[in-house]
Design a protein around this nucleic acid. Structure first.
Lengths: 339, 339
DNA sequence: GCGCGCTACTGACGCGCTCCAGGTCAGTAC
DNA sequence: GTACTGACCTGGAGCGCGTCAGTAGCGCGC
């Protein structure tokens, strides 16, 4: 910086002004400084800037590796953060790297706020984070701490999906849940409620699962094994998310089960992947871009106004009917075997 | 920090020593400082630390959103970086956010070195980065600049895959390439060479593509359309990567094409996704963990020894035969239509 | 002529830490 | 007793920037 100042024949303070795009420098000088800086290859040192200013204007985003929907969210976070003048730093949770480790790394880099995508860590850990700095959680509610919450009305989405399936004539509809994954509890609850509302209490079945392809695969194998023992397949499956739906689809298709003739499958998220599936996954769309936008805005607004309490944004999901759902082959929802 | 020092009855320098876990402080003092810090809620300010130390001990990693293989790499980068005492910062390229933007963000946060995963930017931009700081590129070669290069012997992998297919009896083997994506050129070249070597020059066909599911889907649709016009399907496809293979598989399965009976499909990467596909994708395995390890090591070693020239690590790929490849239904590799 | 306001710019301090050249003090050897 | 050692600790400079009071210069009106 001193070099630039010297070579441009101005003071360091002026260089600072130019680089912050602040008033107080003439047109000509401004251009000269910028040109010289470019020649020298100078870039402002964010560490020093941060230290001097006391603010980093950086948002930390924690996500989980392999969660495709997180990628959709990240894609939406960048533009909104840039619009509001914030930098974004990413840190991933992965096998061998816990969410709290990922979050700590972000804290270490002096992020002013944290955006947690589909956090899966224990409640206490999240509460602690929320108390330490401005935190926004996407898809996972964190009570007892000032943490903003952005999510879709899970219940509404599930209800739409269930009405769709029942409307098609399905009765034996099972749900593969997402364990303690974000949003799972609400989805599970809504599934149960929908089954009851449609008078299908007797058919109600929740299979414990996860938000992974593996979970879909394992469930699929289990269902196929059951079929081989004489238990009829369900006619429809409401998966915990798209990844799970996809794993299930792969097993079923592979095993010669016709989708949607023998089995309808509905996912959740409408992630990038499901967009690209030519098989056309029927799924509940969560608007990733909009969720990301809300998350960033919440963080920035809380940063601007310390007094602001934590808020919640509930977005409307929307059922997207594609190719994996259709009327069951046997109108009454019972397979020939069981009939 | 001053508060901690005062309350613990020591100098600030001593607090610094304690927090850096350096020798020069007594057991008792150390514990006292730590205890006081905990009470006050003090955490060292990394910005100031970084500024004072002149080193950030941070590795910047640029990746592309939705590239599943990058997630596998990231998963491998974290543990190795931690082992060597480095922090990792992630920055994603995405729609609306170019690779150079992603890299700039990393530079702004004072990363000492850059690891580029499957960079796709123009040569000049990469060369410039390489000249500015220690840079390691994974899967994409950057000549004319001191950039380390980690990749697999693409040719070897393709050759194995081709020998496998030809050994099964395939003759009409097409290749969907990865455009100017990392590794594509070598894979394409190796495919051509293999076809020639097996005397299948007449059957040689490269379909332009990308490393995305969409590309596989589009190619699949195109091939099906050709079939409907009387052009026989190939009996085997060597896809540019797993994502592409997957898109293709989805279309084909959906269209009732039996895999591998009517069509064998071979992918490339053995990414997380292909692991999870119950359909068992035959693919060329790239050892993501090992590649990540090399990338981190290269960066750290170059950081330690400025004089070190750029190096190259070539890892051996390995064909993993799973369920999507098998002998063609018609032994001669010609479909009934064409026969 | 003077004061006034305005723009363009400067000087110096401080952000919270690390680093280094010391200082202090018990312990040990002779 | 002196000389030396090593463990433990301190003071102060400085990392590269932002900030803000302050200065210089200039046109304007009266």
């Amino acid at each position: 910086m001193a070099d630039v100042a010297a070579k441009a024949g101005v003071s360091r303070a002026l260089v600072s002004i130019v680089f912050r795009n602040q008033p107080g420098a003439g047109r000509e000088t401004r251009e000269r400084v910028l040109r010289v800086a470019d020649e020298i290859g100078y870039r402002p040192d964010s560490a020093a800037r941060l230290l001097a200013r006391g603010r980093s204007r950086t948002l930390g985003v924690m996500f989980t590796v392999h969660q495709t929907f997180h990628m959709d969210l990240i894609e939406g976070i960048y533009p909104e953060a840039e619009r509001l003048g914030y930098d974004v730093l990413l840190s991933a949770a992965a096998r061998g790297r816990s969410e709290s480790q990922a979050a700590e790394a972000l804290l270490g880099h002096r992020c002013e706020a944290l955006i947690l995508l589909g956090a899966d860590a224990d409640q206490e850990c999240l509460e602690q984070l929320g108390r330490r700095l401005v935190t926004v959680s996407v898809s996972r509610r964190v009570p007892n701490a000032p943490v903003d919450f952005v999510h879709t009305a899970e219940g509404k989405g599930v209800r739409q999906a269930m009405d769709h399936l029942v409307g098609l004539g399905h009765r034996r509809i099972v749900h593969i849940d997402g364990g303690r994954g974000p949003g799972s509890a609400e989805r599970r609850r809504a599934y149960r409620a929908a089954m009851r509302r449609h008078g299908l209490e007797a058919e109600l079945r929740v299979i414990p699962g996860e938000h992974t392809e593996r979970s879909g695969i394992e469930t699929g194998r289990m269902l196929l094994a059951e079929r081989d023992r004489g238990v009829p397949l369900p006619t429809a499956v409401l998966a915990g998310n798209d990844r799970c739906a996809m794993g299930l689809l792969m097993v079923m298709t592979r095993a010669g089960v016709d989708v949607p003739g023998d089995l309808s499958v509905v996912g959740y998220d409408d992630s990038h992947l499901s967009h690209l599936m030519p098989i056309g996954l029927t799924t509940v769309r969560q608007d990733a871009a909009l969720m990301a936008e809300h998350a960033v805005r919440f963080a920035v607004e809380r940063l601007r106004d310390e007094e602001l309490g934590p808020r919640e944004a509930v977005l409307d999901p929307k059922l997207v009917v594609r190719g994996t759902s259709g009327p069951p082959r046997d109108g009454d929802g019972l397979s020939p075997l069981a009939g």
